[in-house]
């Protein structure tokens, strides 16, 4: 049973994208993954933007004041097993926005556990794609067995 679940979970990944205050560059690179050239759906990854049915949360942006509580609320809505991936430099370090006088409070790992990070300003669609594909089998492997 666990083997079946492992196989299914690594082939059917539902993604929720949340932008917590970036420059929009990473958003459109995630969006570009949808295009027929990269074709994210052929790998069984579906971008739904619905946290209630997501497995993977793509966090973009250097957490702004409005998101400080909402990011945690959003994370709690995602059913187990789940993993969060930080896309771009912003959720990792705050990139250019993490300066004196700005409103951001990077990194995102202060608020939710981050499973993988994709550096780049912005990263290429292929990098985003390969990270989601690489993290899903690792994060979701033997979830029920290990929880016991």
């Amino acid at each position: 049973m666990q083997r079946v679940k492992n196989a299914v979970r690594s082939r059917s990944i539902h993604v929720c994208v949340v932008d917590t205050g970036s420059c929009n560059g990473c958003d459109i690179e995630v969006l570009a993954c949808l295009s027929p050239r990269y074709d994210i759906e052929q790998y069984g990854i579906y971008v739904h933007n619905n946290p209630r049915e997501a497995d993977v949360l793509l966090v973009i942006g250097a957490v702004t004041p409005q998101w400080e509580d909402k990011l945690i609320a959003l994370w709690e809505k995602i059913p187990e097993p789940k993993a969060a991936i930080a896309v771009g430099n912003c959720p990792i370090s705050g990139c250019v926005f993490n300066r004196h006088d700005s409103y951001v409070s990077a990194p995102a790992s202060k608020f939710i556990p981050i499973a993988a990070e994709i550096p780049g300003c912005p990263p290429r669609p292929t990098e985003i794609l390969s990270t989601i594909l690489a993290i899903a089998p690792l994060a979701f492997k033997d979830f029920e067995r290990e929880r016991k």
């Binding site: 932008d19 205050g21 702004t64 409005q66 250019v96 926005f97 700005s102 951001v104």
Partner: peptide, 21 residues
């Protein structure tokens, strides 16, 4: 307020070489 990063505040007092980016 979801995306307010305060770029104008960061830009202030910096040389144009940085503000460009």
């Amino acid at each position: 307020g979801y995306m307010k990063k305060g770029i104008e505040r960061i830009m202030k007092g910096r040389p144009w070489q940085e503000v460009m980016f």
